[in-house]
Design a protein around this nucleic acid. Structure first.
Length: 480
RNA sequence: GGCGGCAUCGUCUAGUCAGGUCCAGGACACAGCCCUCUCAAGGCUGCGACACGGGUUCAAAUCCCGUUGCCGCUACCA
């Protein structure tokens, strides 16, 4: 009997969607899709203090932006409290959970003491032995209590991890841990198991910071008489300093990368490769290829560093594969900010043409305005360095005037005709192409870089071109 | 401290399970060259790594032991 593959992404809404979390979500998504299974979204919001609605929103928006659409959920743990309560009852009945009246202050003190003395920290299971009468007394007195899970005192527990192999733990090192807080809210290790079991998750794919939690969770599965899922622990994503990704080392949230102008497919492609690879080292993938080729046994075991150089390269590749119209529409937010367009639905053909000419130089969507604004504006700004280098040269003014004459006489103002005419000029006057092209470029655009000169001139139009060459020749160029 | 995980070019990695075909392959970045009216893009070339120390073996990046380093867990966070 083949059971359905079901994976889940289970972030806690205590911060914006983290880039490492995005990768976890991606791998879960790819694995589910590859096996024609289901990908479920679950929000782990049992930490009332730190969970915020805005983070929940950011998570689902981010997932949508990426196109990682979930097949089930989102399930909110805060809405499933009854379920955990039921399972707690079952644990109580089987004697696997007990009430603990120790206060957090007490425990903290003991932990510190243990640390100083160099003895292994961890709960000593004091309240496990509390006589029933004593429990009743404390409870009647209104003392707050947590529920702890009773872990075995001896033995070993091992599990097979799809990326790390077999991992074994000594159960003596795992103390009784809290599964329900004194305010009645269940904790992670408990809710996670209950939900994964109830939602029939077949493969738990998550960060390897959860490895140490896994034995605890398996213990709960066993106590609840549920079958544990397959585990796959992904290596961490680190910052440039090799440490855990943090704001200090760069952007960490997906939203920041969106803001910088990255494309979702580039992000996905890059993240897919950060910890996974094909045997032939393929670098560029469509989502369909990713789904087809992904497999957990080719996931790397070691942590990777989030490096934007490669992301930028992939982003450029993705961008170049789009049409100018698509780029314009994707970049409309930035175009609007720079006042190049009024609204997203008012993208002129001129803008699209300009983007077309500069397409291969765009690496981020946010680059678009600066690449094309000089072609669209009526008043160009002459770059000081460009003027110095190309116009303040002996004879530059005279050359420009010569070009002007030619240009004025080009009847059909196309790039081809312009090029023919100007190349003819270089031959007639026997001067190198560079001597003509460079000053001309600066004269009409104000800068030294840009699209092909003749396409650019055609785009600018005869009237403006003539006007600019005149200005440059008379006001800027060296006329000696 | 205890427990657990990880260790190949600056970065992402292939190769490790089934030791030889690996004086270690690909990609990004970097450098140079080519193309070229500029900047890009593209093409080519180059630079560059098996953490360290033992062992096993005819042979080790691959297997074993130890060391070191980094990371995680050790919460009434997830």
């Amino acid at each position: 009997m083949s059971t359905e593959i079901r994976t889940r992404f289970a972030p806690s809404p205590t911060g914006y969607l983290h880039i490492g979390g995005v990768r976890t979500a991606l791998y879960n998504y790819l694995f589910a899709k590859k096996h024609k299974g289901k990908f479920i979204l679950r929000i782990e919001d049992t930490d009332v203090e730190r969970s915020k609605d805005e983070y929940t929103l950011a998570i689902s928006e981010g997932m949508k932006w990426l196109g990682l659409n979930w097949d089930g959920g989102p399930y909110y743990q805060s809405e499933r409290l009854d379920l955990y309560r039921q399972e707690l009852k079952s644990l109580e009945k089987s004697g696997r959970a007990y009430k603990c009246f120790c206060t957090s202050e007490q425990l903290k003190e003991e932990r510190e003491k243990a640390k100083q003395e160099g003895i292994p920290a961890g709960y000593d299971g004091k309240c496990r032995k509390l006589p029933e009468g004593e429990v009743k007394k404390l409870q009647d007195a209104g003392d707050k209590y947590t529920w702890r899970f009773k872990t075995p005192d001896t033995g070993r527990l091992s599990f097979k991890d799809a990326v790390k192999g077999t991992i074994e733990f000594d159960l003596a090192t795992i103390g009784d841990f809290v599964i329900v807080r004194s305010d009645g809210m269940p904790t992670y290790n408990f809710t996670c198991v209950v939900d994964d079991a109830l939602l029939k998750i077949s493969h738990v794919i998550r960060g390897d910071d959860h490895i140490s939690n896994t034995p605890k969770q398996i213990l709960i599965y066993n106590a609840l008489e549920k079958e544990p899922p397959q585990f796959a622990h992904l290596p961490q994503v680190h910052g440039k300093d090799g440490k855990r990704l943090s704001k200090r080392t760069g952007a960490v949230s997906l939203a920041e990368y969106i803001e910088m102008g990255y494309l979702s497919e580039a992000m996905l492609n890059y993240l897919a490769l950060l910890g996974w690879s094909t045997e032939d080292s393929q670098q560029l993938f469509s989502m369909a290829e990713l789904i087809e080729k992904f497999s957990l046994d080719r996931v790397s075991a070691s942590a990777g560093i989030f490096d934007t150089d490669k992301l930028d390269w992939i982003n450029g590749k993705c961008l170049r594969a789009l049409t100018a119209r698509e780029i314009a529409s994707l970049a409309s937010k930035w175009l609007k900010e720079k006042k190049l367009i009024e609204s997203s639905d008012k993208i002129s053909d001129k803008i699209i043409k300009a983007i077309e000419m500069e397409k291969e130089k765009i690496s981020l969507l946010s680059d678009v305005p600066e690449k094309i604004d000089f072609m669209l504006s009526d008043n160009i700004i002459y770059d000081e360095k460009a003027v110095q280098k190309r116009l303040k040269k002996a004879g530059a003014g005279k050359i420009l005037l010569g070009i002007l004459e030619v240009i004025q006489n080009v009847d059909s103002f196309t790039a081809e005709n312009l090029e023919n005419a100007i190349r003819k000029l270089t031959e007639e006057k026997n001067i190198s192409a560079g001597k003509i092209f460079h000053p001309l470029r600066v004269a009409v655009s104000g800068r030294m870089t840009g699209p092909g000169l003749f396409e650019l001139i055609e785009f600018i139009g005869k009237e403006k071109t003539v006007e600019r060459i005149k200005y440059a020749a008379e006001e800027l160029a060296e006329n000696e």
